[in-house]
């Protein structure tokens, strides 16, 4: 979530979650299951506990490897600007710098 706030700051110069291009899905709270999703220019990068998936924007998730329905809480991400890796910042992506538990890395 701090990553979302940091990304939102990069976009809006204030604190908000509305324009962040990274999101931690939290719609499956009772199952303790979440993923980190990043919107790229043409793909969604989805980091799940069991592994990483890069999916073309516009493709549906329901048929994907039998994983079931996608987390609806990530839907707003599709309407947002893609990640620019905080290209105007010397120290690189803010989401990496502000993740309090070091959950994000860049390969």
């Amino acid at each position: 979530m701090a990553c979302e706030m940091a990304c939102g700051y990069h976009r809006d110069d204030g604190f908000a979650l509305l324009s962040s291009c990274i999101m931690v899905t939290r719609g499956r709270e009772k199952k303790d299951y979440s993923a980190v999703v990043v919107k790229e220019e043409e793909n969604l990068v989805i980091a799940r506990p069991e592994g990483l998936e890069r999916r073309k924007l516009g493709s549906t998730g329901e048929s994907n490897q039998g994983k079931g329905k996608e987390d609806a809480s990530a839907k707003p991400l599709l309407l947002r600007e893609p990640c620019d890796l905080c290209s105007d910042r010397q120290d690189g992506p803010l989401c990496l710098q502000f993740c309090p538990v070091n959950a994000i890395s860049m390969g």
């Binding site: 009772k30 199952k31 303790d32 299951y33 069991e50 994983k67």
Partner: peptide, 13 residues
């Protein structure tokens, strides 16, 4: 279990 549980309420926080 790493993947999503098929049970709706598998545990407790």
């Amino acid at each position: 279990l790493l993947k999503e549980s098929e049970k709706n309420e598998p545990g407790f926080l």
